[in-house]
């Protein structure tokens, strides 16, 4: 990526007030803070039920200095379409229309509306923060919960199915920009969102977002654990621009280098404690096979 943002030149403008209802050490809070910094003032957010609903505040206090509309769970992509349509009708061309949803709101209940928006090529940015379960309702498994993870609805043996690859599904719509990012790499996230504001058509950014209570780790490790997901090669940072895939930033730097073993990541979180050796090996083999193709 050209002209990478650094801590020193990153804007001090904040669009989020302190004192939100987000949990201590919340990964989404970092993602949200960086995302709206990159979006800037002339943006309208569309938000379905999720932790972000709470983070954005309970009536009559809004935690962000951006206009936002809360919408029903399944309708995010369509509601964002409606905002864009209104902007066109009102000849307000300089506004970023930004849908911002969790993984369940994106890949499970919201996938129909999102798919429709992608197929129509709606001019909007869709940001999915993936904390790998339904956290706002108390950690139930979602389509994007990784295999083996303990949640309140997979409480003993853990989830039996693989993590749904949402960015790949979205990329299959042929939209011009799909990217992944991580709460642990806020500058990379910032640059990707910033880039999305300069592109037309549908832009999709999928952000890996550690959640201390949902993943069972101490609040201070949000960044550490987010980084481990990347460094073990479990979650990869990439961009797909006009169909061309390329790893970015920390993931790109991993190519050809030795990655940390996945156990380093699993051992940091209570949600993986039902994994046995065999399962860990299976995952390690999957990761190795994936990276063999990079």
């Amino acid at each position: 990526m050209e002209n990478k943002t650094t801590i020193l030149n990153l804007t001090e403008d904040e669009f989020v007030h302190s004192g939100t209802r987000a949990c201590t050490g919340c990964g989404l809070s970092i993602v949200y803070r960086m995302g709206v910094k990159a979006l800037g003032k002339d943006s309208i957010l569309v938000v379905p039920p999720s932790c972000l609903t709470m983070l954005q505040g309970i009536y009559p206090v809004a935690s962000a200095k951006l206009p936002s509309i809360n919408v029903t769970f399944a309708s995010t992509g369509a509601a964002a379409t409606g905002v864009r349509a209104a902007m066109k009708a009102l000849k307000k061309d300089n506004v970023n229309v930004v849908a911002w949803a969790g993984d369940g709101g994106t890949g499970d209940i919201g996938i129909q509306a999102l798919s429709g928006a992608c197929e129509r090529g709606e001019d909007l940015i869709y940001i999915c923060y993936d904390n790998e379960a339904y956290m706002n309702t108390g950690v139930q498994r979602s389509g994007t919960t990784p295999k083996g993870v303990l949640t309140t609805t997979t409480p003993i043996v853990g989830k039996l199915q693989e993590k749904k690859d949402i960015p790949a599904i979205i990329a299959a719509h042929g939209i011009d920009y799909v990217a992944t990012a991580s709460a642990a790499y806020p500058l990379d996230l910032y640059d990707k969102v910033k880039k999305a504001t300069t592109l037309s058509g549908t832009k999709y950014i999928h952000v890996h977002t550690p959640c201390p209570p949902g993943w069972s780790f101490d609040t201070r490790y949000t960044i550490k654990i987010g980084k481990l997901a990347i460094k073990t090669g479990l979650f990869d940072l990439y961009e797909i621009e006009n169909g061309a895939f390329q790893l970015t930033g920390p993931s790109k730097r991993l190519v050809g280098k030795e990655r940390k073993p996945v156990t380093d990541y699993f051992n940091t979180q209570g949600r993986f404690k039902s994994l046995d050796e065999e399962m860990v090996k299976t995952v390690q083999d999957q990761v190795d096979a994936k990276w063999a193709n990079y």
Partner: peptide, 28 residues
């Protein structure tokens, strides 16, 4: 400290100052 703070309570100043009214004490 300023960059990673989830709650925007650390200032980008020398020295960084923490707003204890809102700091949740996550330790990040």
């Amino acid at each position: 400290c300023w960059l990673y703070c989830p709650d925007c309570v650390v200032s980008k100043t020398i020295p960084p100052v923490i707003n204890f009214d809102y700091c949740k004490g996550c330790g990040i």
